[in-house]
């Protein structure tokens, strides 16, 4: 009988410990959400006042870097060229690889595992190293800093990202579908492009959007390879401006008006990224209702 108070006390202490830890964890969780909201608010609060129609519709004119008139249309267009080109080029490589892993190599577990392992390592290599590698490729192939070099580098950067996202969607396809297609006498090519691509379409669109978002926001890899210019590029050999680099260069300026433009450009970039994540959410909820 004399142990019961002791047991009760230890029970109380246990519950106290649980409650303390629980509240610490809850506070941390909500503070992550708060930091996120704070980040978006700071960028909007600084960016919206500096935003104007002139900023997004004109290229820099004479005194732009001293706070005079002009806009960042060159960077917006350049970024769109770069990321559309890179996404397109990357899809040419990543769709076949993901399909190959899931159809041709379906039962070769070791090879498949090895390739996924290598792709995971590539996924973790930072963009600055892709930039350095792109620079080496430029030296080898005697390219100048240009739109083309930037597109190639960005395509290399986003290919592992697109493959991983598409691969996850393909892995969700039941094996019975593959067997049924074989039984119908389809070739593997027909299975890949008529059945698997259609079946994993939401995954493919999501993967493309993720890749596009990464390409449009990446600065470190294009720093080496595309250069920077005030003009809108007219051919693949031209150097190209990009939105992240525009932000980066303008923020390091000592003139307040130029820094204001960096905030506005950061706001535009954040809006683009938010729009892409919204699109991804819509795609996954809308399109997946047509799946088996």
């Amino acid at each position: 009988m004399k142990y019961i108070p002791h047991l009760l006390r230890s029970r109380k202490r246990k519950i106290l410990e649980e409650n303390i830890m629980k509240s610490i964890m809850a506070i941390t969780t909500y503070s992550i959400i708060l930091v996120f909201i704070y980040l978006i608010l700071v960028i909007s609060w600084k960016g919206i006042p500096a935003l104007s129609w002139e900023m997004i519709s004109e290229i820099p004119s004479g005194g732009f870097y001293f706070g005079k008139e002009g806009g960042i249309l060159n960077a917006i267009i350049g970024s769109i060229y770069l990321s559309v080109g890179a996404t397109f080029l990357s899809l040419l490589i990543s769709i076949p690889i993901a399909l190959y892993l899931n159809i041709h190599l379906l039962h070769h577990n070791r090879i498949k595992g090895g390739i996924r392992y290598l792709l995971d390592i590539l996924w973790g290599i930072p963009s600055i190293l892709y930039g350095a590698f792109g620079f080496i490729l430029m030296i080898v192939f005697h390219l100048q800093a240009s739109l083309l070099a930037g597109i190639i580098t960005l395509a290399l950067l986003i290919t592992p990202i697109i493959i991983r996202a598409f691969d996850e969607a393909l892995q969700g396809i039941p094996e019975g579908l593959l067997e049924a297609s074989y039984a119908m006498g389809l070739t593997r090519n027909q299975i890949a492009f008529h059945i698997f691509v259609r079946q994993a379409m939401p995954g493919l669109i999501t993967a493309t959007l993720i890749g596009f978002g990464r390409a449009i926001g990446d600065a470190a890899s294009v720093l080496f390879t595309t250069g920077y210019t005030d003009h809108i590029p007219t051919s693949l050999d031209d150097p190209t401006a990009s939105l992240p680099l525009a932000i980066f260069f303008q923020l390091s300026s000592p003139i307040p008006e130029v820094r204001e433009r960096a905030y506005a450009a950061a706001f535009i970039l954040t809006l683009i990224i938010l729009a892409i994540s919204l699109l991804i959410r819509l795609c996954t909820s809308r399109l997946s209702k047509y799946q088996i």
Binding site: G217, Y263, S277
Partner: peptide, 27 residues
């Protein structure tokens, strides 16, 4: 809360590093 954290996580992972840089400089 799980869903919210997932959304927050996805967007935070997608925000370009240069925007984080701007935030760092400002805050």
């Amino acid at each position: 809360l799980m869903r919210t954290i997932h959304i927050v996580m996805d967007i935070l992972a997608g925000i370009p590093s240069v925007v984080y840089g701007v935030w760092g400089v400002l805050v």
